[in-house]
């Protein structure tokens, strides 16, 4: 399955944009491992999943685990741009109570800036 992960590393807020339609067990572990590795020296991370139409249960589990690892590493994370039906899934699993979700990357970055009281990237 083809996917692209665009990474914009930064020591403050790193952005990761995942481009694929179906985030499933086949690729989820690898994608999140790449993001985790790239995010090792950042303060905060915004993961843009706006192109994703479908997430299987394993991918959801991997996302929750990524969130745990980032939290343990002191990295604040937001998941940006999830489509409404996937946000419905998130709410059904109450994941919005343990992870931060934002409407899009801009909103996610603003939220991270406010939370961490740091400068806006590229400002």
């Amino acid at each position: 399955m083809d996917y692209v992960v665009y990474l914009e590393p930064s020591d403050k807020i790193m952005m990761a944009r995942v481009e694929l339609k179906r985030l499933t067990a086949d690729v989820a572990h690898q994608i999140f491992a790449e993001i985790l590795q790239a995010a090792s020296s950042t303060q905060a991370l915004a993961i843009d999943l706006a192109t994703v139409d479908f997430m299987d249960s394993t991918a959801i589990g991997e996302l929750v685990f990524l969130g745990k690892k980032l939290r343990n590493g002191g990295i604040t994370c937001t998941i940006a741009g999830l489509k409404p039906h996937l946000m419905g899934l998130v709410r059904m699993m109450r994941l919005e109570t343990i992870m931060h979700f934002s409407e899009d990357t801009d909103a996610g970055i603003k939220g991270l800036v406010n939370k961490l009281k740091i400068e806006m990237p590229n400002s």
Partner: peptide, 28 residues
């Protein structure tokens, strides 16, 4: 526990969705 909302179909044909979600078992 993270499972789709059960549906309650009343005898008059109205349908209610039960629950407000919950964590899947084994994740948190």
């Amino acid at each position: 526990a993270g499972h789709p909302y059960p549906l309650l179909c009343r005898s008059d044909g109205s349908i209610e969705s039960l629950g407000e979600g919950g964590f899947p078992v084994g994740l948190v």
